[in-house]
Design a protein around this nucleic acid. Structure first.
Lengths: 252, 252
DNA sequence: CTACTCATGCTGGTATACAATATGCCAGAG
DNA sequence: CTCTGGCATATTGTATACCAGCATGAGTAG
């Protein structure tokens, strides 16, 4: 995706053989997509990340230890790819590897959660700016549809569903910016936030206002009001940060 | 087979002896994580990162390949910690590991550089907001001193020095926010930007304006003008992005 | 009954051996 | 001379063996 791979011809040879989808001879139009199986490291990474995100780590405060050897056995692979996956998860802030002690799932403190939300506010508000300058009206339109089913008080009754739509909305904002760096940085923050979402992010009395905020954001984007869109997005996110600061006592 | 005769612990013993130079006294409460000897993985990570940052990768376009085994030999360790360090560098966007091909240093495209600067603008402008709300006057004061020596036209004559001070200024802004997430995210972006700094970031005609911008930023911070500080910081960074877009033709 | 010592087991860290595959060269056929 | 096919080589991915340190608990001295 990144490297142009211009200079050495060796790379392009195999690449050319790969995208035989040109099919000038029509011998086999649609060849098997790619038979390259993902590395065990990447598989282990995905499996572990899903497992960690799925567990409700803030339910109690006991240390959650992950056993390298046991996980390797469960996955049917050796310790090496598991370790490499763990190392990546550690650099992303999901686990902590303590020498001769164990690997522990990381719980974020309230302060850290607030810092993450603040960073997310910075990224998404910049994304909003970019959208007002580059996105087409067709790209912005789908944002409205997300909340069609929640028009009137229905959101209060379906908090879980709304929570999903809520996250999807914010992810869409980031993606519409078209800035890969913003997207990647925010993705990691989102993953962390998904882990605490269940207990805090959405509360009944916040839903109505949340929908209003979102609608205002969409209007600002459509109106190409750069500064206003940025401000609305930022304040919406920072409002969540304040909410967490006040009410997420179970953190810490 | 015969190699098994040699005790494999020889290397580790000597390496352990290397970092046996530990703090004689724990007098300073600041930060002394020396208690645990850094793992080979972390040492290799640091060494590799420094080496990659130091090399002027945009000088030519040849693929720069890093040889796992050779590096492991040079460091006097095995491939395992080198691999784990490489995996981390890959997740941070510095290298790319291609299965059964090699590990290559990543060159950022012009688009990617602009995206990074944009993300940096988002982070630093948020940092500026936070500073106006929480930082003390004593914390802001040192920012002025940085440019004391560059008051009049001296900056033009000492571009390299100014470039360092310039980076230091922006890092200080981020750090003053006191938000670890912002700090860590920006740190990685800064490291990437340092790699292209030599050729683009600073140009003669931009220095004067750069100093003016910085002074305005400092004044806004001191005046606790939240919105203005944010705007100044953001526009300053985005101005650099525009500059890169127009003149950094050597990228791509 | 308490406190302290020491052996043992479990842990992650490291080294090394083995496997799979992409590449390039070379021989042989057309 | 050109092209094809196979083998040697190089490189990473994975598995396994070993190391050192900390925790734990049993056992002994007081």
């Amino acid at each position: 995706m990144s490297s142009r791979v211009r200079s050495p011809s060796n790379v392009r040879v195999s690449a050319r053989g790969l995208d035989a989808a040109r099919a000038p001879l029509a011998s086999q139009p649609s060849l098997a997509p790619i038979e390259t199986t993902q590395s065990f490291k990447h598989k282990a990474y995905t499996a572990l990340k899903n497992a960690i995100v799925a567990m409700d780590i803030y339910r109690n405060r006991e240390d959650i230890r992950l056993d390298e050897r046991k996980l390797a056995q469960d996955f049917g692979i050796s310790r090496t790819p598991v370790r490499e996956a763990m190392a990546q998860l550690e650099s992303e802030g999901f686990v902590r590897m303590v020498p001769r002690r164990g690997i522990y799932v990381v719980r974020k403190t309230k302060r850290e959660v607030i810092e993450m939300i603040t960073a997310w506010a910075a990224l998404e508000s910049m994304a909003a700016r970019l959208i007002t300058q580059t996105a087409t009206i067709e790209e912005i339109a789908p944002l409205r549809k997300m909340f069609a089913t929640f028009k009137d008080g229905k959101a209060r009754a379906h908090l879980d569903e709304y929570s999903e739509v809520n996250i999807e909305f914010h992810q869409s904002i980031i993606k519409l910016s078209g800035n890969r760096v913003l997207i990647d940085l925010a993705e990691n923050l989102f993953t962390h936030m998904r882990m605490i979402r269940r207990k805090t992010i959405v509360e009944k009395d916040r839903v109505e206002r949340s929908i209003r905020d979102h609608m205002n954001i969409i209007e600002a984007l459509e109106a190409r009001s750069t500064d206003r869109a940025e401000e609305l997005v930022r304040d919406h996110a920072l409002g969540l940060a304040d909410h967490v600061a006040k009410f997420a006592d179970y953190l810490d």
